[in-house]
Design a protein around this nucleic acid. Structure first.
Lengths: 205, 205
DNA sequence: GACCTTCTCACCTACGTGTTAAGC
DNA sequence: TCGCTTAACACGTAGGTGAGAAGG
């Protein structure tokens, strides 16, 4: 019986392949608040991190693993009076919002031996030609993982959407509950978690 | 006409492949002094870094790139009166002193698009089961790069030795000229480069 | 004793955070 | 004015240096 994964549009002989989202509980907490991800000129990492566990691959076959960001709405969003509301018409999605996992290509055995982490993907709102992903600020996105068997024709790509990980791209956080949750769980933001225990006037220039 | 590489033992149809050492001038400065590399329990990076430029690969073929450390002598070495002299009989070389480049396996095009750096290899004198390379302290080693076409039989591995990068493994530097050169060029040792410009008593516990 | 190894340390590099004020 | 974006910043994480004292 196949593990519960992100869905997946494959059929026939690959039916046994599964790709499941790790840290799903944390993702759902953000989803409940409507998740936001910062985009910057030089690129910003995601938090939480998209991390998936794959199984059922052919251990000796070679795969490339991709993370795609699909613009899921036809409008932009505004944060008004503490909630996100649809705004004007959507901008054209930047083409090629696809991140190639840096360990690609690799054997099925490699992808299955430990969770596949997309910790290093960086989101940007500018075209700066690196491995960064350009998104439209104030638009909603859904991450999807693709498995591509090397040398296979494109009709046999396996796709795993993860609706729990949907987010609105922003240049600054809008919902302060989202900010608090990010600070609480992202170790790199620990400076702000401890702030209340610090003496007055600690932030001097 | 083939680029000058590290030699290479390939023949026949792969004659056009070349693998050349980067930063050769720096390596030669260390070689002149007799180079030393620290080994520690948890593993120590190399400085300089073995970095090579490959050309002539089949862009669409898949290769794994290896860095091997070959024990080149049949004796151990001692540092006596400012120079390295042969000591007793060599210990048995630890088997499998081979580091797999973390981007392996990958396409020829990938390996050729920028220099291949072995910056993250770590040298140790203990068996600690990770991706670290175990060497015998006070023995001399020569790094060699191997290219293995995926799925190819082992007789067709291409080997590129780099005599300029030979070094003696040590648990502490012996030749202070070697130490000085390391401090001068390794950015992570900058604390010691600037030491003379610091006030007295700067190193307090 | 002499030689070699181990461990802790101050001091760096490198870079991931949200904050804040300024810019547009 | 308002909404959104940018850039500098303090403060973390993470980990790579040789020095020096201690251990074997």
């Amino acid at each position: 019986e196949p593990t519960v994964g992100g869905g997946g549009s494959r059929s026939g002989r690959e039916r046994e392949v599964s790709v499941a989202l790790d840290d799903r509980e944390l993702w759902v907490r953000f989803q409940t608040l409507t998740n936001e991800m910062i985009v910057t000129k030089n690129g910003r990492r995601m938090f939480p991190v998209v991390k998936v566990t794959a199984s059922g691959l052919d251990p000796t076959a070679m795969y490339t693993v991709l993370l795609e960001f699909v613009q899921v709405d036809s409008h932009r969003w505004k944060y008004v009076n503490g909630e996100w509301v649809p705004g004007g018409k959507a901008e054209v999605p930047p083409s090629n919002a696809i991140y190639i996992h840096p360990e690609s290509p690799n054997f099925g055995a490699h992808w299955m031996k430990e969770p596949i982490s997309f910790a290093k993907v960086k989101l940007t709102n500018k075209t700066n030609g690196n491995g960064q992903i350009m998104l439209n600020s104030l638009h909603k996105y859904e991450p999807r993982v693709h498995l591509v068997k090397v040398g296979t024709d494109l009709r046999r790509i396996m796709t795993y959407p993860f609706p729990e990980t949907q987010f609105i791209a922003v240049t600054a956080y809008q919902n302060e509950e989202v900010t608090s949750l990010k600070i609480k769980y992202n170790p790199f933001a620990k400076a702000f978690l401890d702030a209340k225990e610090r003496p007055e006037g600690y932030y001097q220039r």
